[in-house]
Design a protein around this nucleic acid. Structure first.
Lengths: 211, 211
DNA sequence: CAAAGAAATGACGCGTTGTTCAAAAAATGA
DNA sequence: TCATTTTTTGAACAACGCGTCATTTCTTTG
């Protein structure tokens, strides 16, 4: 009767549960990414994950709950990767380059989730009653403030000129990257996401109007 | 029996029909903007517009049709205004300023539609079976090509430096404006949409890295 | 004014979907 | 092995919403 569970390793039962949960979320991710919240039924998720409908309700209170958990957990991964890039080593310019690069990498590796992610974080998502979008927007703002710190720090040590408010620059850079990625998703051959981060960053680094 | 209709003025009946159609679309716009496609029922639209459900089907084949017509007609207005700005008089810089300004004006005047517009044109919209988003994306691309011409022309007559591909610049400017507007919608007092277009344009005009 | 035609109405049919729960199956442990 | 507990299952339920169409209301015309 192994009631006690070590902090680091869970009981076999619990590990099994987590595995199942992950499988359900994986199936749901695939479906939601392809068809959107309202065009996927619990029936469908259950079939794809090879569980009975009832089983889904052992893990998630309802459909909304399942969806929220899915989006939130994916966002955790994205946020962690982006933070690592902008708070890692290197000067401000190098960190911005890393950010652009990691953004591209993450999106390439999670193609199916991109559209869902952009829809939820940028465009208005009317999927859920109690706004998931609000939670996500808050997280985005929090991240943008940290990205703004990179610009601010660069301005403080004379590496950057004060051409705009740091937060505004953060907003701008993030949106430009997302736009480039969206174009890349739409037609990868016509609008490839640049290997060289400076293709994007030069828009910010260099001035359009000659000095 | 006024069967013949002048090209310019329609019969009383037809004018009446158009008025009704407009009223239905106005009601639908309000509802869809607030709650999104899937959270608005035909019942609700009918009640808001003060018609019977059946009447809606005199004007639109089905719910999707109604929604598409709504979004498309709104986009017509936006596109026309934007085109007037970037193809109007003035040098390239002035035209870009106009574009930023008009963008702000249009959005301010159509607040309720912004989120819907961004969701449909930027984020993935899974609302409809046969992609409205694809149509809109095509239109967006077409417009961006015209916006790119402004940058190209500026480069050709030495007003602009060739810091990036003109189309890339168009994508970037458009996305930055939209992002600023989205932030403004979320909290108008904290992130006001700048009266002075150069607050946004300086990100492009001036270089972050000193020459 | 009355008959014929046109338009508007909204209750209802029908399919869909989220959620429940009693029964079946599997796991447990003595 | 078998009684007991835990987990899984999926048919049944209830709610909902789109779109239809028989009926009513309004308009036109003779």
């Amino acid at each position: 009767m192994p009631k006690t569970i070590t902090k680091t390793s869970l009981s076999r039962r619990e590990r099994e549960k987590l595995r199942q949960r992950k499988e359900i979320l994986a199936a749901a991710l695939r479906l939601f990414s392809e068809k959107g919240y309202h065009n996927v039924s619990m029936q469908e998720i259950a079939e794809t994950a090879e569980f009975a409908i009832g089983t889904l309700y052992k893990f998630f209170q309802n459909k909304e709950d399942l969806y929220k958990a899915l989006v939130m957990e994916q966002c955790d991964r994205f946020e962690a990767a982006f933070l690592a890039a902008i708070e890692g080593p290197g000067d401000e310019i190098e960190r911005l380059r890393n950010f652009v690069r990691v953004h591209g990498d993450m999106f390439r590796a999670n193609l199916s989730f991109i559209r869902l992610f952009l829809a939820e974080s940028k465009g208005a998502s009317f999927n859920l009653k109690a706004g998931l979008d609000e939670d996500l927007r808050k997280r985005l703002y929090g991240f943008l403030e940290k990205l703004a710190l990179v610009f601010e720090s660069g301005m403080n040590n004379q590496r950057f000129q004060k051409i705009a408010d740091p937060y505004a620059l953060a907003v701008a850079l993030d949106s430009v990257i997302d736009s480039f990625l969206l174009h890349w998703v739409a037609s990868p051959e016509r609008h490839p996401y640049p290997e060289d981060p400076d293709v994007i960053l030069n828009i910010f680094f260099k001035g359009l109007i000659p000095p």
